[in-house]
């Protein structure tokens, strides 16, 4: 028998070989190559030959000192944070509603399908669609504002928000453009986050909820005391994937306003693209910027894992204690019931 097993081991290597080859060729080699290009003078359209620089870190220094890169990095982080927080809050709220055991929301399936839809549509199309939607002087949003302003009640409200006199040239303002990109990101992703969180809640053993209900815990007590701590690992997963996706955001800012106006929506990925594939084709600077971003992402993810993991264990122990308490309470209740 043992001999038999040993002779099959080679198939383990054989069957994972295509993966390994493809990874080495299309991922590892390009990463190393990117790193090397970061130390060289490689620039100019269609050039492939290069020399190492006298000061190998020159590109990294130039990128780190470039005001445009600073703007891009600030924008990227700002836009990610501002879209992630409302996205998760909204997803959590919807999760609480959809998994509420005392009052079932009807049509959940349909709502899920509709909320998730923007996520599956080509981001490039969405970027250009929103560009057209906020068109000036006559885009759909301006048209809607004009119609709403003709109603007295809405007019007062809109005037207070500074939207009282359309047409408004939305895409001229840095703040507004950034806000729209943030809105698009939130709008595209809250449905996805919601589905993930719901599946997390459904994975929690129903007994815990039942026990809490028997104990007389209120809706909000249950949500904050049981649901939230139990979906912590899934929140971490959402946080890390969203962070990496957010820090490499490209399609929306690139096509919505080409990183403008005045670099207001320039992200680091758009910066890298522009450095390498426009102007003077500075592959070396783009490579250095890529490596810097790679380091930032790795460090940020590692920190997140570290923070969340530590607290996690502490929390898990607390939950276990609470569960024990609840179970005891349940037993007590059962005994009482038996007596009666």
């Amino acid at each position: 028998m043992k001999k038999n097993k040993l002779s099959y081991a080679k198939y383990g290597y054989l069957f994972s070989l295509p993966f390994v080859i493809a990874f080495l060729l299309f991922s590892l080699y390009p990463i190393c190559y990117t790193l090397i290009i970061g130390f060289t003078d490689l620039k100019g359209m269609g050039k492939t030959s290069f020399h190492f620089l006298a000061d190998p870190l020159q590109n990294f220094k130039v990128v780190l000192a470039a005001p445009t890169f600073h703007t891009a990095l600030k924008n990227t982080v700002f836009m990610w944070v501002c879209n992630f927080i409302p996205q998760v809050l909204l997803a959590l709220l919807l999760t609480a509603w959809f998994t509420d055991r005392s009052s079932k929301v009807r049509g959940q399936g349909l709502f899920k399908v509709i909320f998730y839809m923007p996520n599956i549509i080509t981001a490039a199309t969405i970027a250009i669609l929103f560009n057209a939607m906020f068109g000036y002087p006559m885009g759909p949003v301006n048209d809607l504002l004009a119609k709403m302003n003709s109603v007295g009640f809405f007019h007062g409200l809109l005037e207070k928000m500074g939207l009282g006199a359309p047409p408004i040239y939305f895409l001229q303002s840095k703040t507004t453009t950034r806000a729209i990109v943030i809105f698009i990101q939130t709008w595209m992703w809250y449905g996805y986050t919601m589905i993930i969180l719901i599946s997390g809640v459904l994975g929690i053993s129903p007994e815990i909820f039942e026990a809490a209900e028997v104990d007389g815990a209120g809706k909000w007590q249950i949500f904050f005391g049981i649901t939230l701590p139990n979906i912590r690992p899934i929140l971490l997963f959402t946080l890390v994937t969203s962070l990496i996706g957010g820090l490499s955001m490209f399609d929306i800012p690139k096509l919505f306003m080409l990183g403008g106006p005045d670099n207001a929506t320039l992200t680091t990925s758009v910066y890298i693209y522009n450095q390498a594939f426009s102007g003077s084709y500075m592959y070396n600077r783009a490579a250095a910027a890529s490596i810097i971003m790679f380091i930032i992402m790795s460090v940020a993810s590692a920190i997140l894992f570290f923070i969340m993991r530590d607290k996690d264990e502490v929390k898990m122990q607390k939950i276990k204690k609470e569960q024990m308490k609840l179970r005891k309470a349940e037993e007590r209740a059962a005994r009482k019931g038996a007596k009666a």
């Binding site: 290009i37 994937t241 990496i244 996706g245 390498a276 790679f294």
Partner: peptide
């Protein structure tokens, strides 16, 4: 470990390799 590497960071090297 490699699950999270975004394509954006490998792209310059990948482009140069494919171009070559």
């Amino acid at each position: 470990a490699i699950m999270m590497i975004p394509t954006q960071v490998t792209m310059i090297g990948f482009y140069q390799f494919v171009y070559k």
